[in-house]
Every structure is written in structure tokens, then in C-alpha cells.
Design a protein around this nucleic acid. Structure first.
Lengths: 347, 347
DNA sequence: TTGTAAGCGTTATCAA
DNA sequence: TTGATAACGCTTACAA
């Protein structure tokens, strides 16, 4: 049968010859209604192609069963995994997710959160947030759970956070290189992920120090600042940093992330440097590209999908009124083939 | 200042000592209101932290300024680019996007679209849809624009479609190999993307035929069927198909997508087959992994982001009441270093 | 220029 | 067991 634009509960009531509160009850399997009438109405609703209006429901229930998810860019596999985890958990709980990207621009981030707020999402998950304390306070006024995943803001106690321990991750990576016998180890970082870069750099420095290795400042190379909102490609950054690092005397390099490492490897190859024989390379993230690269990349595994899931679960808990605690997950080393003893020709 | 849960237009009206329609008008810069009062009210709204309720607005306007985006999985860079394009255009137009993934399961797909329908999204974009005509009719009843991007359903005229020409893409890839001098060329396909795989296979077959090359059935390998909803990793599929193809006498292979190609290359490397010297490899998509691979992958470029943008623009046009036409974009060949003359040792 | 009131589609609280 | 009715927060005729 054909039906008019959008069938409402009133339309059903008219057809069924009952009041619309009766219809509402029937549709909700309310016990205050006769079996017979209920089935009747449900059948009619079905045949009329009724689809409840979630806006109206949300308006009245003050609950939308939706969350907002804010990421920097979808192109980075790192975020893709977070989205995956969030979406999976959301689906289980019958929650829809709004996705928006900031391109690493704090102003964009704020705008997006405002939009989510207007839409009355039940919670917000922000990955790699760069917003400052000033705005954080404003966030708090919204009175919905906000989970910061791997926050990139230096300031403030945020509402809740779920992160990976960047420091220990870097320690593991550098330790691995030291255990292999390397002494001259470089660090390749990025300037536009302030906090995580800093934490990884600290892990690097700390590990070298503990092993009584004096760091040559030339070993540490951070790409130059880009204007806010501009998101240069990590692969390209890696290529550029790679050619810088080849000017030094290092035998191994710890990279901020896998994609940077990929760029470094590409440059090494072009320059005739073989990996791992002449240069050991360690990444961070454990994206799917690690296995595609040649040689497969030794890296620090971040449980990104898990973090996404956990973040979503935290929101659910908040909504249920349960207590939630911040999460700091530990990454772990995954050894592949891009690392070896220094100048080891047998590999 | 602290304020109660959520400030409504009524609260502002009370504070301002006017009726709430006046507030509404002031907030919308209505001309039927005095400059003075307007500024007054806007100031008050601001200070009270007013954030309009998009649910209420949507309910009354019958327009939510939101769209639903359905993809198979976020982990495939192919979809990531589509999401990118959609999101970019949506943002420009002040539209929020709901994202949901199907994991290639048609039942999931239907559920998701039902959910979007309840939320009264203004439009839906579905990538790689597998739903059949039966459901397509139901979709039509919803009376909102639905754009199918690279549909994977064999049946039916859908509402609107935006696709890439898989056939000509494959022709270009295979032609390139033939021009390089290859005669024994393989095809590596997938079973769970029925339509696009079929179209690419047809392009492959057609091109060989036009060049009077008799195809040995052993050259064509499609991975075995997986259960619906199960999404095996293309890289792994590529690795497996790769070892099959090495049993044949081909000198070049055209792969369904870049990730498959990456798997093939990995297998070749393990088996001591050098690329492109002993085996030329062509991919499809032109993901960012093409440049990361060694050697960089020759492939067919799909304008995925553009398709996402176009799909979103089509929805906007529909909503504006303008005519829209289906789109079939042409892919193009991108030559990198994974292809060469057969057994060419000088490269 | 402003206020009143109806309506968007639900759910929930009353009475009946 | 059912039916009015109010309320959710907003926009917009229609009156004043």
C-alpha cells in the first residue's frame, strides 16, 4: 500500500479507531493494554510503514542515544581504529554516532563540539584534543560525559580520559634498540602533536640516560611547525626527516609513528641505505602498514580499537550513573624485521 | 555564572521579560524586531550559555541537517577517502553526519538505514551497498534522497548512484601491461565484492580479447567465498592468492585492489620473486599505501574523495529541489615502479 | 514591534 | 483498560 509522507502515531490511531496514547502503549508493549488491541495496532503500524520519530522521542526523553566523535582526520589509520572501536560498542548499545574531523584545528574542534551540544548528544568522545582549559570549563557546563582519548592538550584535568602510555611505549622501543647493541639512536618527531610527541621524546631521553648514553642534540629531529589546521602528511614528513637523519652518525632511529617510519624507510632505500643492516627503524602505533612495509616494521603496538571501545563504555557508564575511572593503557613492543644489531650483515 | 541544566528559550524570555517568540525572533535576526531588543536578548542568551535544541528545531522544521553515511568498514583506506569527501562537503553545508559500518553484512545495512530513517536524516549515502531490490523499494518509500556509491548490488535501478567506472579502469590497467609486452597476465579478485569484481574482471577479459590473447583459466584466481558479514583482510587474501599465482606461468598480474596487490608483493618477496623484474603488479584504488610499498605500486586511481564530495552534493541538490543526475567517474592509470617489461633486467 | 497560540511527534500523568 | 491532556523546545501564523 502507498502511504502519505511520514506516518505518525496519530495516523495509526485514526486508522485503528483508538486514541494515540493507546497506540503509543501498544507500540511499547505496555502491560496496561489488552493483548488483542496491541497486536492489532502493531499490525496496522507495520502495514502503514510506521517509523518512530527519534527527534520527538529524544525531545521528550531528554536522551538521544547518540554520541559525537571528534577526530583529527579519518585518513590516519590510527584514528580509523579508534572509530572502529567506538562504533562497534555504540552499535551494541543501540547508539548512533556523529563523526566529525578537525584537521587538527582547535577552532574547528570547538565548533564541532558546539554542534554536537545542540544536537543533544548523550556524550562526546574527542581524540587528540587540542582545546585548552578555558574551553574545557565551558565543556563542563554542558553536563554530558566527555571522554578525551589521547588528549593533546597540555593543560587541565579533563572530565575523563582514556589514553595510551606514550612514555613507557617509547621506553620499550628505545630499550629494544639498546638491547640490540645500538648506542647512537635518533628520535624523529612531529611538532603538531605536542603532548604525545613530548611524552615519547621523554621516554626516549629517559631510556638513553638510564643507559648512560649521552645524547647528541643532532640525533633529535622534529619537523618544523605547520600552521594550525594544516595537516601535512606524515609520510612526507618522514621522508624529509629521513634525509636529515642520514647526515648524522646514528645506527638506529625511533620514530614518532609508523607512517613517519615508512617515510624514513623510503628515503633510506632511495639513498641506498639498507634496513635493518645499515639502519634500524622503530615505529609507533602498529598500523596495518607495518606488515605491508619492507622490511616489516618493528613498532610499539597501541590498542587503539580497545581504547575506542573503552571510551564508549565509559560514556555508557556515565549515563547509567556508575562511577568511571580514567584509563591509561600500556602499549607493547612488536618485533618485526626493521631492527637488528648495528651493522649486522648476516641478517 | 552557573546555570541550570539546559537553558531554553523560555528561560531567556523570563530573564529578558519578553515573550518567547520575541526571543526566537531575536535569535534569528528577524527584521520584525527592534535593534535594541535584539542585541539585549542575544547578550542575555550568550551569558546564560544558551544552545538551541536541534531536536526541537528539527521536529518543527522537518529538516535535521544531518545525513547518514553507511560504509563497509572504516579500516579500508578506500572508504576512509569517501568519508573524507562526504564529511568535508557536509561541514561546508552545516550538515552533521552519522557514520555506521556494515561489515559487509546486508542485514546490518538494512538495520542501519532503518535507524537513520528514524532519526529523520535528510539523506543517506551508502557505499558498496549489497541490499537487493526488495529493500530498495522500501527505501524509496522513505522519501529521502539516497545516493548509492559504487553499489555492490546487481539488481535494480536505485534512486541515485555515484560510481567509478570499474570496467574502463581495468582496461587501462591491463592495457598498460600489454603495452609493456606482457602476454600472460593474471587476474586476482575477491568474492565478496560481487559487482565491482565482476566489472573489473570483464575489463580484464575484454582487453585481453581485443588483443587476441587467449586466457588460460588458471590465470584468474578469485578468493573463496566467506560467510556474509565476515570481513577477511584483503592483505591476507592477497598473500594467499599470491602463492597461487606463482604456480602459473604469468609474468604480470592485475589485482582487484591495492591491498591485495600488497599481499601479492609480500608473497613474491618471500618466495624470492623480484618485482617488477620477474613479476609486474598493478593495483586498483590508488590508496596512500601505493607510495609506501616497495616498489611503489602502479595502480588505477579512483577519485574516492571526489566521489564522496559529489555524493554529498547530490543530496544537497535533491534537498534544494534541483535535478540531479547519476555520476560515473573515470579512473585513470598511475604508473609507478611495480610494472616493467617482462623479465626486463635493466630496470 | 510584540504577544498568543498552534503545531511538530512523542511519552507520561492524570482521570474515567 | 483506555482517553484526554500536558509537556519536551522550538518556529510561525495570526492578533494585538
Amino acid at each position: 500500500m502507498t502511504y502519505s509522507y511520514r506516518v505518525s502515531i496519530k495516523d495509526i490511531a485514526k486508522t485503528a479507531g483508538v486514541s494515540y496514547s493507546t497506540v503509543s502503549r501498544a507500540l511499547h508493549d505496555s502491560p496496561l493494554i489488552s493483548q488483542e488491541v496491541r497486536e492489532q495496532i502493531q499490525k496496522i503500524a507495520e502495514s502503514m510503514g510506521y517509523s518512530p520519530n527519534a527527534l520527538a522521542q529524544g525531545l521528550q526523553a531528554k536522551r538521544t542515544n547518540s554520541v559525537g566523535l571528534v577526530i583529527t582526520t579519518i585518513s590516519d589509520p590510527f584514528f580509523a581504529d579508534i572509530v572502529n572501536g567506538v562504533e562497534e560498542e555504540a552499535k551494541k548499545a543501540g547508539i548512533s554516532v556523529f563523526l566529525a574531523t578537525t584537521r587538527n584545528d582547535p577552532d574547528e574542534e570547538i565548533k564541532i563540539i558546539e554542534t554536537f551540544s545542540r544536537r543533544r548528544v548523550d556524550g562526546v568522545i574527542v581524540a587528540s584534543s587540542r582545546i585548552d582549559t578555558g574551553y574545557a570549563n565551558r565543556l563542563e557546563q554542558i553536563h554530558i560525559p566527555v571522554i578525551m582519548v589521547n588528549t593533546e592538550s597540555e593543560e587541565g584535568n579533563f572530565i575523563y580520559s582514556a589514553s595510551v602510555n606514550n612514555f613507557t611505549g617509547a621506553c620499550q622501543g628505545v630499550n629494544h634498540l639498546i638491547e640490540l647493541g645500538h648506542r647512537r639512536i635518533g628520535y624523529l618527531g612531529v611538532s603538531n602533536r605536542l603532548v604525545s610527541n613530548k611524552q615519547r621524546l621523554e621516554g626516549y631521553l629517559d631510556t638513553l640516560k638510564k643507559n648512560t648514553i649521552d645524547v647528541d642534540p643532532a640525533w633529535i629531529i622534529i619537523n618544523k611547525e605547520t600552521s594550525p589546521g594544516e595537516l601535512s602528511l606524515d609520510f612526507k614528513i618522514g621522508q624529509e626527516l629521513g634525509s636529515e637523519i642520514l647526515k648524522t652518525d646514528i645506527t638506529a632511529v625511533f620514530c614518532y609513528c609508523d607512517t613517519i617510519a615508512a617515510g624514513v624507510m623510503e628515503t633510506c632505500r632511495r639513498r641506498g641505505f639498507s634496513i635493518p643492516q645499515q639502519m634500524s627503524v622503530v615505529g609507533f602505533d602498529d598500523n596495518f602498514i607495518c606488515e605491508i612495509l619492507y622490511p616489516p616494521l618493528t613498532t610499539i603496538h597501541q590498542p587503539e580499537k580497545e581504547i575506542g571501545q573503552k571510551a564508549m563504555q565509559m560514556i555508557l557508564k556515565c549515563l547509567a550513573g556508575d562511577d568511571v575511572e580514567d584509563i591509561l593503557l600500556d602499549p607493547h613492543l612488536v618485533i618485526r624485521e626493521s631492527t637488528a644489531h648495528p651493522y649486522n650483515r648476516s641478517n
